[in-house]
Amino acid sequence: MNTSYKPAIHFHEVDYGVEDASILSKITGSFPKGRITTLVGPSGAGKTTLLKLCNGLISPQAGEIYIQGKNINEFAPVELRKSVGMALQSAPMVAGTVMNNLGLPLEIRGEKLSEEDGINLLHDVGLNEDVLNKKVKDLSGGQRQKVSIARTLVNRPDILLLDEITSSLDVTSLKEIEELIVKINQKYGTTIIWITHNLQQALTIGNYTWVMMKGKVIETGESELLESPVNEQVRRFVKGETE
């Protein structure tokens, strides 16, 4: 992988498991700062677990994780999670309106989101201002994902973790969200780590890619590696011979 970029996140020999089951094993590698790295691999490879480790929602049993050069354990959990934002595939929402959800990160620290800032956030993610007072249960899948991303942006994270955020979207919404993520990356220099099952998306949007299988990183490099993988397992995965 190109080493001219400083690592935003670095893993060193990271292990994670639940009870006796190993989920991640000896993960070592970096996500370059200010770039888009995609995580691809079959279901059960440990990709979501890897993202949760970056956000501090779980901790490894062994190994070290460094965020912007600092050991993750030296961060206060609240500070870490403000600078490493996360958007999930299910785009969970708290009950109420879009405004309630956009205001959640500020409400957590006793502040209030102004209506003007709420509208600006919606514009940033390509939504109209009339969505602001809509109930979240009335949103479409695409709108929900966009609100989820906008909500994550309220904290102005340096690193954005995206977990299959386009997997259930129609082609139009998918393109809009891809453009949005590229825009966020270019406008704010935000480091993006994006789990996707869409290999074409990984090739066109991502600068770098990690291919994971059964809790291990099998191959990493510039996204073009997906066109001509070195590893036999990755070659079979790219051809669709494994799920």
């Binding site: 929602l57 500070e79 403000k82 934002g85 969970p92 708290v94 994550t152 904290n155």
Partner: peptide, 20 residues
């Protein structure tokens, strides 16, 4: 759990995450 982890992931405390 998703809602609770959402609030934690945004920088909320356990009390805020489980309040509802």
């Amino acid at each position: 759990q998703d809602e609770m982890e959402l609030i934690l992931s945004l920088g909320g405390t356990p009390k805020q995450a489980i309040h509802s």
